[in-house]
Design a protein around this nucleic acid. Structure first.
Lengths: 241, 241
DNA sequence: ACAAAAGTGTTTTAGATACACCCATGC
DNA sequence: GCATGGGTGTATCTAAAACACTTTTGT
């Protein structure tokens, strides 16, 4: 009875939403699967996939997700949110995924259940570096995700739904704006995530009422139009309902 | 490389909320662990635990949860909702759980990640039957859960939070009322789950506005006070946002 | 006639939405 | 002085909350 048969069966996958402020796009970080060093008989057709990895025997799930994130982005301390566990017995048995499994898994036939997380980052804060499985790292518009390996399209879809559902309550926006930001920046962010447009007067009322913003008394500089007031988030204590 | 090393590592656990209409209590179904047939040296101290089981090699997660539920309650077709995956490497390594693991697990030291589900049933609809691991099956008030095996207390807690969060949107209440019910029954249900009191006029307005109820034109009979109108839920189509 | 729970409407408050003009800056 | 986005207030609508009395039945 092999002790660490564990390691073959549980993985984590991370849906990393990157906010590109300059053109107000929400993107998802994908890796492009690496082809084998020596070419095999069958042409290896690289697919895009979510960053993820098998969970180590002595490693917590959250911990594993953080590790994957850190290896890829060299960013730590981001709020990762577990949102679902995908465990269809067939999820790693599709023909399209055979080759990659044969190349990179010690037991390519093993059933794998994956626990999924999402997080949000400012795109320009990270310079992702392809890890061992990845040839390349790419950002793709969250609205136009290409076909992915395994069941990763379903994972991305569910991550988006969960993100939209929890955006307000989690105040995730903090992670996605610079320390000092304008109201317009805040609004742009919400608009792209929720895929709507708000009236700016109404939009701001919420934040004013909830008293989560602090006016910093500084203004933007060097613009060719009227500079905006800069705001920050109030520090808030942990206490909650 | 043993093929079905899978089976040791993933389990499902079910938090089955039972609604006891007669005294308006919300309870949780627990099993009492079975002691070994022949007494071992160390006294076996039975604990309460959530119903759950290892997931079979060829079995989906939802499917496994349904199996557990069915074996225990002989009820099928209930809406089970996956709400979290618990995977702390130490979650099955506590001393208190050693004995039971030794008795019932082929590999008692294996790390196990558990995928958790909750569901709601009318208590009187089911007559739970202890399965192979269980000596007994008991209902415990959801507000006063005794110490449980493994990390099951944390699981129950999270299930409750998730239930309260999703009660409205999922219209879970359907499962918990008889086909024909009074407005008071509906309100009692919501009150016990959300642990609040509503004004009955305001409470009803929501349902009237959303048009989810149908007045059946029948009344209760044989009461010693004014009989109430009976209602049913409108059938609703799958279409949604 | 009494006990018990059903049934019913209006007022107030708060949050959400709709809407349009002037302002500060760099060029 | 013009182009660009910043900044601001009011009116309306809708949802939520507060609140009390009359009705129907069995005994």
């Amino acid at each position: 009875m092999k002790k660490n048969s564990f390691k073959k069966h549980i993985s984590v996958d991370c849906v990393i939403f990157g906010y590109d402020e300059s053109n107000n796009k929400l993107e998802v970080l994908l890796i492009e699967q690496k082809e084998p060093a020596k070419k095999s008989k069958n042409a290896f057709t690289a697919q895009f996939a979510l960053p993820g990895d098998l969970v180590n025997e002595d490693e917590g799930l959250d911990e594993a997700a953080e590790r994957v994130l850190k290896e890829l982005t060299h960013v730590e301390g981001l709020h990762l949110r577990q949102f679902y566990c995908f465990g269809d017995p067939m999820r790693v048995k599709q023909e399209k995924d055979r080759e990659w499994l044969n190349l990179y898994r010690s037991d390519p036939d093993a059933r794998v259940v994956t626990v999924t997380y999402y997080t949000l980052v400012r795109k320009e804060m990270i310079r992702p570096i392809p890890g061992s499985f990845a040839r390349n790292v790419v950002w793709k518009n969250a609205k136009r995700i290409p076909p992915l390996a395994f069941d990763h399209n379903a994972i991305v879809k569910k991550a988006g739904e969960d993100l939209r559902k929890h955006l307000d309550s989690d105040l995730i926006a903090k992670e996605l704006l610079p320390q000092k930001f304008t109201l317009r920046q805040l609004q742009n962010l919400y608009e792209v995530i929720l895929n709507t447009n708000f009236d700016k007067r109404n939009f701001i009322k919420r934040f004013k009422r909830d008293e989560v913003l602090v006016e910093l008394g500084e203004k933007q500089k060097g613009l060719m139009y009227k500079p905006a007031q800069l705001y920050g988030f109030k520090k808030q204590d942990k206490a909650s309902a």
